[in-house]
Design a protein around this nucleic acid. Structure first.
Lengths: 357, 357
DNA sequence: CTTAATTTCGTGCACGTGCCCTGTGTCTCT
DNA sequence: AGAGACACAGGGCACGTGCACGAAATTAAG
């Protein structure tokens, strides 16, 4: 025995003392390594349970520092002017990276243009060739995403999906909002604001609407609410794949001509600022405008009362949490029980100051 | 020199190697301890800056384990049936405690009845006698709270205020919502929901209304919105210090008799479930109801559509963050730049599933 | 110049864990 | 009886930091 017999030693030492074995043996039991008889194993496990032993996370990580580096592959849309949104998840990822890089972790970034599927496919290929220890992707294009997921499954590489999900695929977890309920919630807000005899316009602005799962699911949720509580006849839809301002404005003018009793407009993504700009230009401050995401330009319109509600889903936290989940899993083997569904936050001009993305 | 000359040692060792001194000297410089010549100090500081040295938090804490325990005093309302709300901050505090107790930290709890000032005063006295290293309080009664704050100031004990603030007092920081804007936001929601010719009822239910800073400030914010955007004449006020259900219901019935065109009711605290119960009993599902806090009973009414909006201010996170702030300050000397204003979240039947207190 | 006082700096241990090595005793099979 | 497999003991190193103690260098006092 190397230990003093009296005191409240913590951790493995104490277990070893009580079980009258050495630290090494306790260590073997804790890590399920061979070389321990069943009898001893049981005895040690009983003591572990009795003491409710929790390993000292600090010491654990510290000890792990000396081992080899772990490489994470992160696949994200790049940050163009038109998709400023993706800055936020990236910031979250950077933050997580900064926190854990000193513990032997490295993040490799792969970017793609959301409008160009071939680049996405290429980056997926790259990731597979580089053989990372963990993967984090936003599955913008489903077929290639599934290819990557299959690869991860066979290689037993944990993969986290972020921002939108793919049903029925094997993955470590999904971290992001429940998009259906996001649309449903929007409809509920619309309902509260809607006066008698007014109609609602639902606006999709994106280069690829049919391939954009996020938009489609939100719209589905939105429609579901109207079917359930109101009537689909109150809805007027507008889709435009031309995302330039004048094109959007033209379509909106056109439609407003036909439907004069629009009381609320719901935009299914962060492009709501285009509609806000238009609304302001035609001087219609009476129309309620609901859209997505805590972006600088959206907040400006929110302050001025042009945009009334912004729905936000903590993109920064999504990024941060995704990386941390991979980290926890790879380093400590923390098993992930379920998806982490991000809250759907409602932001107005009265509470945006306190929001944290 | 004890170091190998070649490689990428991290941390203090590397600095020591470059400065051609020992780790201990670097250590002294980092912690501003005496015993280092000005020349050496400058040289080391330059290298620290050059390398952008960040201490390894893990190793830091680990090393601190051996030192004496730090005691935190926490002063909270106790959890009675009528104030279930306080369970949440307590849970947050417990969570933080669990995380940091293995690093030599201990939390002492002091509870009081929100209706009995004398107990509060007594507990304040107790805290001062026990001479803690850090203090966390919810300043329900202002005079005694100020007494404690003065004590902390002279003794240089850090003190965090949670849930509501006291203006102009010296303290480490305030962690909680901006209550004025909370009321203001409620009024904004009311405005969106209000139909023509409808009036709004504002309801205060509490034993002590005049002494309850939280209620008063929220009400102020609410009124401010109406003065600014609508008219005070649309408001009907109801105060009751009798918090039993039948008393509240009686007062509500009375008032509804006089004012038949009530379209929205705003309850300034978590007692909103009392109003919800009454609304349901008289079968008025048309009246919009807005109140506070993610409590089980409130959520039940939210699900059933009796309550329409709940404003929530992450009470659990408030507790967690308060303790962690004290911990960071006491253990690492992390200086606290400013108050942490908690977001004001809007919860409806469509997004409550994803809310995290 | 010598000696004491003071300043300046180095060494070694501790924190709890993971993982390696060597040695020793025990049991089983040939 | 000898060989091999197994179950452990015991020690050691590493991770990066904080700190007590002692050694060395410098300065002040005699």
């Amino acid at each position: 025995m190397e230990e003093k017999q009296d005191s409240l030693l913590s951790g493995v030492k104490e277990i070893a003392r009580r079980a009258k074995v050495s630290r090494a043996t306790v260590d073997r039991v804790i890590h399920n390594r061979p070389g321990v008889s069943v009898k001893t194993k049981n005895r040690i496990n009983a003591i572990i349970k009795e003491l409710d032993y929790q390993p000292n996370v600090l010491a654990q990580r510290l000890a792990l520092t000396s081992r080899g580096i772990i490489r994470l592959a992160v696949l994200l849309p790049d940050i163009s002017e038109e998709t400023e949104y993706w800055k936020a998840p990236l910031e979250g990822i950077n933050k997580a990276e900064a926190e854990i890089k000193q513990y032997g972790l490295q993040v490799d970034y792969y970017f793609f243009d959301q409008n160009v599927q071939s680049v996405f496919a290429l980056q997926v290929q790259q990731i597979m060739e580089n053989n990372p220890d963990g993967v984090l992707i936003t599955p913008t294009f489903e077929p290639d995403s599934i290819r990557l997921l299959e690869y991860c499954k066979t290689k037993k590489i944990p993969c986290v999906l972020m921002n939108s999900d793919i049903a029925g695929q094997h993955r470590l977890c999904y971290i992001g909002p429940e998009l259906f309920d996001s649309g449903y919630l929007s409809a509920q807000l619309v309902h509260y604001c809607l006066k008698d005899q007014q109609k609602v316009m639902i606006v999709n602005i994106a280069r690829e609407i049919e391939n954009n799962a996020a938009i489609l699911v939100k719209e589905e949720g939105f429609l579901a609410y109207f079917k359930e509580k109101l009537s689909e006849r109150l809805l007027v839809a507008l889709n435009t794949t031309d995302t330039r301002h004048h094109a959007v404005a033209a379509r909106l003018n056109e439609l407003l001509e036909l439907e004069s009793h629009i009381g609320v407009i719901y935009v299914t993504n962060s492009r709501v600022s285009l509609v806000a700009q238009w609304l302001e230009s035609i001087g219609r401050s009476d129309i309620i405008l609901i859209g997505y995401d805590y972006l600088a330009q959206n907040i400006e319109f929110l302050k001025r009362g042009v945009i009334d509600f912004l729905l936000c889903e903590k993109p920064q936290e999504q990024g941060y949490r995704s990386v941390m989940t991979l980290f926890q899993f790879l380093v400590f083997g923390t098993l992930v029980k379920e998806d982490y569904l991000i809250p759907i936050d409602i932001i107005t001009s009265a509470n945006y100051r306190y929001y944290r993305n």
